[in-house]
Design a protein around this nucleic acid. Structure first.
Lengths: 207, 207
DNA sequence: GTCTATAGACGGATAGAC
DNA sequence: GTCTATCCGTCTATAGAC
C-alpha cells in the first residue's frame, strides 16, 4: 500500500529490540514520542538514548530532525493528494462525496499514529520548512477536501457539515483507536456518522 | 462574563500600542503568538522585543512562561467545569444534551483564540506541569462532556456522534472564525450541525 | 516597573576516528 | 554504521542596579 517507507506501528513493543535495523526502530520510536510528548519536547538525545545509540548515529539516517517527520508523513500526504486529484475529476454527486469520505477514512485509518502526531503538533509541524515549501501539508489538503464535499453553491451550514465530517473521521479514528475492540467496528461507526454529515440532507434544520 | 483575567482579543491590533498596561498587552500578544506560531516556537525574547521591553520585565508579571498559559486558559477551564457539573446534576434527557451543546458552543465562541491555541499546541500544552496537576486540562473535560452527551447504554456509534459533535463545535468555530461575515451566523450554523449530532437519531443508518 | 548582565542548561548539528 | 568530542546557538530564569 505504501511505497516502502511507512510501516505498521507495533503496539506495545518498546525500544529494546536491537534485532531490527536501526532505521526502522528509529522511525517507529520517533513517531511514538512525537505523538505522545510532542515534536519539540522530544529531543534527538532522548531518541538516541532509548534506541541505545548516540545522537550522531541518527544523522547517518536522516539529515535533520525535521527530515524524520518528513519521512513519516510523506506517504500519507501523497495519498491525500491522490484522493483530491481523483475527486476533482469526478462529477460532483452525492455518490462521489461518499466515495471521498470512504477514501479519507481509509487513509486515516491506515496511519492513525501519524495523524495523531500531526493533530497533536499542528503548530510545530506547520512551521517546519518542508511544510511551508509543500503548502502547509495538512491545512491545504483539508480545505481542498472540504470543497469537494460541498456543493458549488453551498451555504455556510453545508461547509460546516463538510468540515465536521472530515474532522470527525480523523479525530474519532485517533480518539477511539485504543478504546475499542475491533478496528473494523470503529471504522463502520465512524463511516456511518461521517456519511450522514457528507450527504447534507436538503433542508430540515431540527432546531 | 469572566473573572477579570480574560479579555477580548483585539482583531487587527498589533503591539505598537504602548498606551495600555504591559500585563494586558503581554497576555494579548502571547496568546496571538502561541496560537500562530506555537507555544515552543515562541520565545520570551520575541514577546519582549515586540512588546518593547526586555525579557526580565516579563518576569515581573508572570513567574514563568508556563504561567502565562495558565493565566490565559484558567477561566475557560473553569467554565467547562461548571458546565460539566451542571450537566451531571441534570436528568439525562435530549433537552439536557441540547443545553450542554449550547453551553459548550457559548464557551468556545467566547474564547476562540484561546481554544485555537489549545488546539494547535495539544502536545506542548499537555506536557505542562500545570496541566498534569489539574488533570490534563482539555482531554479529561472532553471525555466528561462526551459521556454527558451519550446515553448510559450508548453504542460505539453514539459515542462517535457525541465526540464528533463536540469536536465539530470547537473546530468549526476556529476554522471559520475569520472566513465569515457575522459571528452569529457562524454560531447558528455550527449549532444546527452539532444539535443534529447530539440528538442521536434512533436508528436510521443511511449506509 | 524596567533594565543590564549572566548563569546554566539543553538543543541541533558536524568533524573525523574507528 | 557507530562512536567521541565539540561547536554554537537559543532558551528559561535570576540577581541586583536604577
Amino acid at each position: 500500500m505504501h511505497t516502502g517507507e511507512a510501516m505498521a506501528v507495533k503496539g506495545g513493543g518498546d525500544e529494546h529490540d536491537r534485532g531490527r535495523d536501526t532505521r526502522s526502530r528509529l522511525r517507529e520510536l520517533a513517531l511514538k514520542l512525537f505523538a505522545e510528548q510532542g515534536y519539540e519536547k522530544t529531543s534527538l538525545r532522548e531518541i538516541a538514548e532509548r534506541l541505545g545509540v548516540t545522537k550522531a548515529a541518527l544523522y547517518y539516517y536522516f539529515k535533520s530532525k525535521e527530515d524524520i517527520v518528513r519521512s513519516l508523513v510523506e506517504d500519507y500526504v501523497a495519498e491525500l493528494d491522490e484522493l483530491i486529484a481523483w475527486g476533482k475529476a469526478q462529477p460532483a454527486t452525492a455518490a462521489t462525496r461518499a466515495e471521498i469520505v470512504r477514501g479519507y477514512l481509509h487513509i486515516v485509518a491506515s496511519g492513525t499514529e501519524v495523524f495523531r502526531m500531526l493533530h497533536q503538533n499542528q503548530a510545530a509541524v506547520a512551521s517546519l520548512a518542508s511544510a511551508k515549501e509543500r503548502g502547509e501539508l495538512i491545512r491545504e489538503r483539508m480545505d481542498a477536501l472540504t470543497d469537494l464535499l460541498t456543493e458549488p453553491a453551498g451555504t455556510l451550514r453545508d461547509q460546516v457539515r463538510a468540515a465536521s465530517c472530515l474532522m470527525s473521521v480523523s479525530y474519532c479514528c485517533m480518539r477511539f483507536h485504543d478504546r475499542v475492540a475491533s478496528a473494523a467496528e470503529l471504522e463502520k461507526a465512524v463511516l456511518d456518522v461521517a456519511l450522514e454529515l457528507a450527504d447534507a440532507a436538503p433542508a430540515d434544520a431540527p432546531a
